[in-house]
C-alpha cells in the first residue's frame, strides 16, 4: 500500500476492495451517507441503540479471528448487550503505508463474513492512509445501529441480592490467544480467540427470561471488570466462586506461567448476565443449547453489600477481595 503519489488510484482500489467485500445495496450507492428506511427500523422495536468503538490489535491476524472480525463482533456485541437487534454498521479504516494489499483483502473478506454471520450490513465507510510509522498497520472504527425491542430494560443498576451471575463460556480465550500470537512466548498451548457475535444468544436468553437484570460483554478488563462495574452501578456486592469459573486448561496453563488471572483477561465473545435466582438454572440450560453458550454456567451471586465490593470464595475455603481491575496486574505484596 502506498501513500501520497497516485492517491486517487489508491483510493479507488481500496474502495473497490471494500465495496466488493461488504456488498450491499446501501453501500453500493456510494453516496456520502447511508440512507436507512425508518419503517423497516421501527418494525424491530421502539428505541435505537447506537454505539461506536475503535479497534487496535497486535497482531492484526490471530487464531480465531483478525482485526476485522473484532471490529464487527465488538460493535455488534456492544449493541446486543442492550438487548438490541444489531442492524447496520459503519466502517472507517486507517491504513498504514506499507500494509500489503493481500492482507487488506483478507481482513475485509473476513469482516464481510463476520457481518454475514451476525446478520448486519456495513452500510457506510471511509478510508485514510497514513504515512509509514504513523499507524500500527491498520486501525478500524465501527459504529453500529440496532433496535431495542419493546419492554427490554437491561441495566447494571438492577442487580438484586440473590441474583445469579452467569457467563456463556470459558474465560480469557481471546486474551490468551493474543498474547501467544503477539510475540513468541514459547508457550506450548493451543489457544484460539473466542471472537463471536452474541445477539443470537441474547435474543434466546431474553425470550425465555425477559427479567434478566443486567448484561454486558466482557471485553477489555475481562469478567472481573464487568463484575466490578455491576457491583458499583447497583450498589451491591458480588461474590464469585473460584471452583465454578470455566477456564480451558490451556488458558489456565498460560495464566500460571505468565502470572495473570483469566478473570482479568479480555474476551471477544463472552457475556456476563445477572438474572433472578429462580430463573438461573433454566437460563443456563437454554444458553447451553445455543452454539455461543455451550459452556454457560453460574459463576457467582449478588449480595446485599458492601456496595461495590467484589469477592471470590477461594479453593482454599476463604473469601478474598478480587484484585481491582486497574489494567495492569501489579503485586500488592510489600
Amino acid at each position: 500500500l502506498a501513500h501520497g503519489a497516485g492517491g486517487r488510484v489508491m483510493r479507488q482500489l481500496i474502495e473497490s476492495i471494500c465495496v466488493e467485500a461488504f456488498n450491499n445495496p446501501a453501500l453500493a450507492l456510494l453516496e456520502d451517507q447511508a440512507r436507512l428506511d425508518m419503517a423497516e427500523i421501527a418494525a424491530h422495536g421502539d428505541r435505537l441503540a447506537f454505539t461506536t468503538d475503535s479497534y487496535v490489535v497486535d497482531p492484526l491476524e490471530f487464531p480465531g479471528g483478525d482485526i476485522g472480525t473484532l471490529a464487527v463482533n465488538g460493535t455488534v456485541n456492544d449493541l446486543a448487550v442492550s438487548g438490541a437487534r444489531p442492524l447496520y454498521l459503519s466502517c472507517a479504516l486507517i491504513l498504514e503505508e506499507g500494509l500489503e494489499i493481500s492482507r487488506l483483502r483478507r481482513i475485509m473478506a473476513s469482516m464481510s463474513d463476520a457481518a454475514g454471520v451476525a446478520g448486519v450490513s456495513i452500510v457506510t465507510g471511509d478510508t485514510k492512509v497514513v504515512p509509514r510509522g504513523k499507524g500500527d498497520g491498520m486501525f478500524i472504527n465501527t459504529s453500529g445501529i440496532g433496535v431495542i425491542p419493546q419492554g427490554v430494560e437491561l441495566a447494571a443498576s438492577r442487580c438484586q441480592p440473590g441474583d445469579c451471575v452467569i457467563v456463556n463460556g470459558t474465560l480469557g480465550d481471546h486474551g490468551a490467544a493474543i498474547l501467544q500470537a503477539r510475540g513468541d512466548l514459547a508457550l506450548e498451548a493451543d489457544l484460539v480467540s473466542d471472537c463471536q457475535p452474541l445477539h443470537g444468544l441474547i435474543a434466546r436468553m431474553l425470550a425465555v427470561c425477559p427479567q434478566v437484570h443486567a448484561l454486558r460483554d466482557a471485553t477489555r478488563g475481562g469478567v472481573a471488570g464487568v463484575v466490578y462495574e455491576f457491583a458499583e452501578a447497583s450498589g451491591r456486592a458480588i461474590r464469585l466462586f473460584e471452583d465454578q469459573l470455566p477456564v480451558r486448561p490451556s488458558v489456565r496453563g498460560v495464566c500460571e506461567i505468565l502470572g495473570l488471572d483469566a478473570l482479568h483477561f479480555a474476551n471477544e465473545g463472552k457475556l456476563v448476565a445477572v438474572v433472578p435466582r429462580e430463573a438461573a438454572d433454566s437460563m443456563v440450560a437454554v444458553m447451553r443449547e445455543h452454539p455461543a453458550g455451550r459452556d454457560a454456567c453460574i459463576i457467582g451471586e449478588v449480595l446485599d453489600g458492601p456496595a461495590g465490593s467484589v469477592q471470590i470464595s477461594t479453593l482454599m475455603g476463604g473469601v478474598r477481595l478480587l484484585d481491582l481491575p486497574i489494567g495492569e496486574q501489579l503485586p500488592r505484596i510489600c
Binding site: G183, D184, Q329
Partner: peptide
C-alpha cells in the same frame, strides 16, 4: 521450569514489570 517463556516475558515486557525491590 519454562525458562524460555520467562526469558521472553522479560524481553517482551509481558507481565514482567521492573522493580528496584530489596525484598
Amino acid at each position: 521450569h519454562s525458562l524460555e517463556t520467562i526469558e521472553r516475558m522479560i524481553a517482551q515486557g509481558v507481565n514482567a514489570p521492573l522493580t528496584s525491590s530489596a525484598g
